[in-house]
Write a protein that binds this DNA or RNA. Sequence first.
DNA 1: GCCCTGCCTCTTTTT
DNA 2: GAGGCAGGGC
Length: 713
Amino acid sequence: MELYNEKELDRLNPYQKEAVLDESPACIVNANVGSGKTTVLISKVQYLHHVKKVNYEEMTVLTFTNKAADEIKSRLLAAEPELPVEKLRGFGTFHSTALYYLREYLPVEKLGYTRDFLVIDPEEELELALDLIRQHKLKIKYKNRLKKRLESAMAVRGEEKKVSKYQDDIFDLVRLLREEKASQDKMTFFDLLENANLLLREEIGNSPSPKWVIVDEVQDSDSQQLVFLDRLVSRGANLFAVGDPNQVIYSWRGSAFQIFYTLKHKYRAKELTLPINYRSSSSILEAARCFLQNGSPLTGVREPGNKIIVKRQYDAFQDACYLAGRIKKLHREGTPYGEMAVFYRLQSQSGMFEDVFSREGIPFEVSLKRTVGDVPVLRWCIRLLRFSLNKKDTPSGIYVLASREYGEGISEKKAKEIVCNSKPGASLLFDKMCGFSRICEELGDEEALFSYFELERYLNPVSASYMEDRDAVHRLFQIMFDYVKEQQENREAGMRAFINSSSLYGLDVLREEISEEKDSVKLMTLHASKGLEFSCVFITGVNYGLIPLKTRDMDGEEEERRLFFVGITRAKDRLELSYYTNPGERAMPGESRYIRMIPPRLLEGEEERGPAVSLQELKRQVQEQRTQVQERSLQEQKRSLQEQERSLQEQKRSLQEQKRSLREQEPAPTKRVRHPRYGTGVVVREDETMLEAEFEGYGTKEFIKAFSELEYI
DNA sequence: GCCCTGCCTCTTTTT
DNA sequence: GAGGCAGGGC
């Protein structure tokens, strides 16, 4: 094994180094965008291993996405090629780690499961729920929103009174569903964490207790994940968590802005910061600072770079055409397509760009994940394997037999009868599924599996999609056999693990190219952009009503701002914003005030701009700052309170300064204004935000100063 | 099964 | 501010 090179540490800046070397039992690192968060995390792991002699098996590294987990693992393996992958089994998403614990250590029998349980996707749980409603004649309101209703009902735990808001049987359904899932040996993503938390609560000898728990993007944790974390920490694990409160964009999913501070308080954690951003040019960074909420220092090291370009477009189509030309130009000048990305607020906005870009011959990729479940034939095959591996999974058996497209096309009623009464001889396919365990180990290759189930017959050879379907199934089986070989377990256990991981990771079987680094422009929502970086970023539709999206409350509004912050901080060298004068239904015409919040000297647009921030906006910001301080003072220690107070003072001072400079710009008592449409007029009334002027031929008009195109003469 | 009223939600998405 | 659903009255 290679020795951990001390020089590794010297490559880090002092802040990063401090975080890696920190010895406190709990440490929370407040990492700014682009400050080398992942580098610190990986360095920490290596440092613990090589210097502190903590085995990799004694660490649990938790991430939210598979992508992040894969990145950490591959970077560790790149630094240490001889490291056996099995040692990193505790490195993964919260869910995959919970799955690992449940399978290997925790007494799942206590909850009515066997060690061979399978993971199912939310879709299947919904089917199960609908079935139970029918069976037990439950009264459930808003069935079309059952998925959401189940989610919120399942989140109600313990002694809270379980009375439905709509006075229906939703809680009975939750209970029945839990029993049904246990009896069919199935767990959903939710159950994985829930059950792991339940079993980890009791002291059990043979259960996992890692020495170190390391968490990436801790600000995204929901309550289940926080409990999971707590279970591990209360067993004596040290905690090292990295995150950025300015990047909380998933609170609608259960994470909360103040989690960072709650954690710090709860574990009396030491708080460190990584302030230096290496990613973006200083202009981009300065613009980003306008959207920071907690006054944390965000320091850059790069040159000013290009100005931020703001473009006014008639509509999305015009914008797409303009962008196509712009992207081609940048490409000619040497920026690879893969270094450019277009962000938008809503999934539905991607269509226009896809159309125009494919017409213009620009290679692009839309970040939308397709999984096995999205392809009917693969869905059917997975369920065929499910029932073959788990006879308790009767719904899968029925699904396979009663499918209209594939299999024997038996009526649902008959299928139910065959599967539930386990009638041999009634269906060839059913007998094959039942007999699968016996011959499973003897199957030579994926071809043998294909012919065992006589799939050339059951995949409906007369259908138009037969060839496509057959290839997809072959590919699925191929991937499965490769996976099983890697696992070094017996065939049946390996296949079970494969099916679990395919629901957990969403195998992208259909993807033609395996190479991730295709040179193509990436199209995605602002949410999907988190964690990525590009040389050149285009954010489109920066209209009020879209960015920020019209929100219900103040919290939503703040989240919109963080979302925009995440978007602009993805850009390394170029940031270009556009807005529409004629947007669709949802948005309002004209630029979003987010554009006005960026100092004009950073911008390069085709028109002159008014004051960067309206007084109203500044006032609102200070107000927000004030309420934030109040909220946090409940949780935070005195010291940080004072810090906040100081930053508030600074904000106030800068507000006063800006007010003063605004006032200086204001005219002497003459008060005449020019308007592009109404010509020159005389100011009748004026206060901090509003202005009333009389124009010859038009009468008196009222304007909001910051948004009107008035000019003092 | 139709019409009316009231109520609810809508967007973002990972596992 | 629309559109979908539940439930009551008919």
